[in-house]
Nucleic acid binder design. Structure first.
Lengths: 341, 341
DNA sequence: GTGAAAGCGCTAACAG
DNA sequence: CTGTTAGCGCTTTCAC
């Protein structure tokens, strides 16, 4: 099944190639009847223009490269999905590249993508900390999603814009929800302090507790790891240090799972004695828990979509600047129902 | 930074375009010194041939389309990673397409990929049951990974080959391991019976129990759902029906988690009283569990890699036929250590 | 209104 | 050994 070319269409319609092209693209002035004849021929032959030829001529490929350092992990996947969705709607195809966090692979992919004349690049990651920019003077727009370039981009100014989740807002939403449901001894167990996301979420939480004069249970944020194990360990610690705790906001759903297990083992009921709110809204984790976990959803697909929109705008000549944040949303489930008291 | 063209290189080296091409591609007979001069010019100018032009001419794009129905879920991601890895090594780039299980989207993507003249297609899924073939007479080879086409492919014979995990082997490995570690009352809790994967895993387990005259604890496979909730429920059921059970092989890690929680709640110790083996070796699940879960790893990346290899072979004119199975491996962790007795 | 011709960047066949 | 030519499929002047 060879592809029909415009030549075939022209022959079939009894016109020249140039005329056929004009007819198909609505260019120039042609007799409507000619246009129709060409359209008809194209339809009959199942003609579709060869994008390679078009690209060669136009210098635009309608492709973009998506580079992830995250092995398509839990975070970058939804981001990529959202981006792919938004780009696909604009008839843009996506080359996917997984660098496995290897700078050398990243470089190879970058060369390949530029070589293939992509119209733009989306770089995704698993951590929001600034990373070395992917390259300067590439000649194509770059948008970062779930990660951001460090520095201000060198001599040429910023090398691209970035779209990030609203970690501060997420922490605040969790805190507000716990306050609203009557909790007054709220603790925070989260990942390593060196993670910007952990610090921002903590800041968001503090931001809503402080105005109400509600201190953090245990007096401080319990930084540790992003693991269930740490959740279990920290919960034990917390029960000893601050037995009055009636709510725990966790920096991840995995931590929340560990916390839940430890509370149950210690004979505390969730949510009656202690409410739990997680972060990520990672379905298998939050729905598998007993009771199901309330959690902050970063709306990763929206981040991807936003990044794609910014990229399309940049390709169109209207580059976004700086960092943009996408709001998340709190999903309330049984683990943080109102205290029964 | 405009891309240097072969014309620039030719000019810089003081030769004609044709000569430059030959020099760069090692064709024809040229004076070594000329070759060197051209190579030098290319290097200096950072020349890289325009793949669009090459593709236009050669009718090969060195791109393949990867279509997933799974929204890049837990199963298709590692598969895609493996495939992308193997293809990337062959300098082939991957267009990624997520159909969200929507036949119409699938069709759109298919048209787009064929239109872009991909050299081949990889179709991945989340279930191994036969699915409607993606299309017949596409003119490009297709390999299915983690899914397979139904029918025998219509008038033209099979429309492509398929690469699947070894579910039977996985079930057998789990059973053998439990027998070897001294368990004799082995139960099986798994997902819905309508899932081929569930039936195959059960078959594998039975295949190793039967020869040793070891009956299945509770007398039958407990089919249910792929969820923690079902794991909890089924474990309760099992303890009532077959209190002597000393090992449970679970059809998924999520089920295994639920089982573990229920056993703990019932006062049974893992692994001392009852061993647990899961399936999928899904790291966040198996490592987060307490104790960490033994689990069967389907080696999804290998499946992807195998699919990519088959596709490359097919593109090269040596299409694979039928269904190929990739061996998994059992990862033993604390949840199935030998009975202490 | 329509056709002929040039050219996007490259390779392959043929002259010289 | 090297240069010239044709052409992949398409769009876009520019004549007619």
């Amino acid at each position: 099944m060879r592809h029909a070319t415009i030549r075939d269409v022209a022959a079939d319609a009894g016109v020249s190639i140039g005329t056929a092209s004009k007819a198909l693209n609505g260019q120039g002035r042609l007799r409507p009847e000619t246009r129709e004849r060409v359209a008809e021929a194209a339809r009959r032959l199942g003609f579709a223009p060869n994008p390679l030829a078009q690209a060669l001529l136009a210098g635009r490929t309608y492709t973009v490269g998506m580079i992830t350092t995250d092995s398509f992990g839990r975070f970058s996947i939804p981001v990529m999905l959202g981006a792919e969705d938004a780009l696909g709607a604009g008839r843009i195809s996506v080359f996917m590249c997984d660098t496995r966090d290897d700078p050398e692979r990243e470089h190879r992919y970058l060369e390949m993508l530029i070589g293939r004349r992509v119209d733009g690049l989306i770089v995704t990651g698993r951590r929001i900390e600034p990373r070395p920019p992917i390259g300067a003077g590439l000649g194509v727009p770059v948008v970062y999603a779930m990660t951001q370039p460090d520095g201000s981009g060198g001599p040429d100014g910023p090398v691209g814009s970035a779209v990030l989740p609203d970690d501060v807002g997420g922490g605040a939403a969790a805190g507000a929800h716990l306050l609203e449901t009557g909790r007054r001894h709220i603790a925070h167990i989260t990942g390593p302090e060196r993670f910007l996301a952990a610090r921002l979420r903590a800041r968001g939480l503090r931001g809503v507790l402080a105005p109400g004069g509600v201190p953090l249970a245990a007096g401080e944020v319990l930084y540790g790891e992003w693991s269930e194990r740490w959740g279990r360990e920290a919960a034990g610690l917390l029960l000893r240090r601050a037995p009055a705790t009636d709510a725990i906001f966790c920096g991840s759903d995995q931590i929340a799972r560990g916390v839940g297990d430890a509370l149950r083992a210690a004979g505390r009921r969730v949510p009656d004695d202690i409410a739990i709110v997680g972060f990520d809204n990672w379905e298998p984790m939050v729905l598998g828990a007993d009771p199901p976990l309330s959690s902050v959803d970063m709306c990763l697909e929206d981040i991807g979509r936003a990044a794609a929109e910014d990229l399309l705008a940049a390709i169109g000549g209207e580059p976004a600047r700086g960092v943009r944040t996408v709001p998340g949303r709190l999903v309330v489930r049984a683990s943080s129902a109102s205290a029964s008291s």
